[in-house]
Nucleic acid binder design. Sequence first.
DNA 1: CCGAGGCCTAAACCGAGGTATGAGCCGGCC
DNA 2: GGCCGGCTCATACCTCGGTTTAGGCCTCGG
Lengths: 218, 218
Amino acid sequence: MTGPNSTRGASTPSSALPLVVIVDDDAAVRDSLDSLIRSIGLATRLYGSPAELLQDKLPDLVGCLILDVRLPGISGLDFQAQLAKHGILLPIVFMTGHGDIPMSVRAMKAGAVDFLAKPFRDQDMLDAVTAAIERDRQRRSDSAARDGLRAEYETLTPREREVMGHVVAGLMNKQVAGLIGLSEITVKIHRGNVMRKMGVRSLADLVRKAEALGIARN
Amino acid sequence: MTGPNSTRGASTPSSALPLVVIVDDDAAVRDSLDSLIRSIGLATRLYGSPAELLQDKLPDLVGCLILDVRLPGISGLDFQAQLAKHGILLPIVFMTGHGDIPMSVRAMKAGAVDFLAKPFRDQDMLDAVTAAIERDRQRRSDSAARDGLRAEYETLTPREREVMGHVVAGLMNKQVAGLIGLSEITVKIHRGNVMRKMGVRSLADLVRKAEALGIARN
DNA sequence: CCGAGGCCTAAACCGAGGTATGAGCCGGCC
DNA sequence: GGCCGGCTCATACCTCGGTTTAGGCCTCGG
């Protein structure tokens, strides 16, 4: 059985090439998919079971998963849920030889990119993988933006966050002051600090960042 | 065959009771579903074919569609696409006796709420219908909010919209003035009109409304 | 103990936001 | 023609936002 370290080196440089992780208990299927995926210039990583994948630590690359729904020891659908708990958020393309409709519907509801019945056309798999990678790219981009925002927000002191909340809610400095029992001038100071730390120069931008952070519930 | 006017009156008052529209060419299936849906207190409307549904004009109620994928004259999936063009945005629950996985995946990708293989358990159908209605309720709520915003936005004159765009982009009045070749005081007037017509009293609220409207691309 | 950092405040000043009053120009419509 | 509405501008006045300078209080940790 192909072990965890079955990455094909030649097409897996440490660059930012998208990585397609293939999990199937049939070595022939793995190799076939490996060839297919690498034919469009993507890196691959092969596993014979979910356990092998979990023991290995995946590089943090843009990519996706190709899973057979019938896997050794666990259902592909349960594995899908398990991966989410492990913080592995790679988009998943399912394939199956003996699947049924409820299975496919459940997978799609749980966020799978596609669900292909074997035998599938090569092009269908490539389309699915391409879509999955694009989805992952988007997710990472969104995630990075949110992380950056949160990093800025976390440099704020408790008071500054409190003031920021009221400011983006549309209150005037004097109202904020009255609300939390401060002098207006102090609110101005905090407000200025917020603008500087959040890296914005207009209230409009601050409001947008606050929205993206999910603040300003009032 | 049951005609377009087969609505069961007793459980279909003109109130805001959610409406479940059932399309199936088998009268027995329609009646069975009708009983099931009405058992949980929802109104129903039965059709034997997509054509009948399209000829009829549906009341504008919260609700959903239950479609067989195998319909007279057209595939349920094609009908799904066709309905979207007709502006009928009701969430769809598919059911099928002879469906396959690609069909279910295509339906789910196209936004179906669920895809049930016959025979299905009554409870599964009720769960799907409940979820579909909830989705429709949410969609209508979002849509109504956006329509209200657009109505306000449309009361703005071209100049006012132009000024609004720059203001929510975070520019100062004098910058806006320089950018579109006006005096600062005129910008202030327009800005004041924008605030009044858009029904907001703080810049923060204006920015949020602009975001919801998809303005402020810069 | 003392420095650092968070927190609060004040006085003073300036730039920006907002409104009212008044007025002129132009194009479309009855 | 006359009216209306959109658009423009000016003066004046007031409020609000924002920064600087300067100071005091507290707590935590070296």
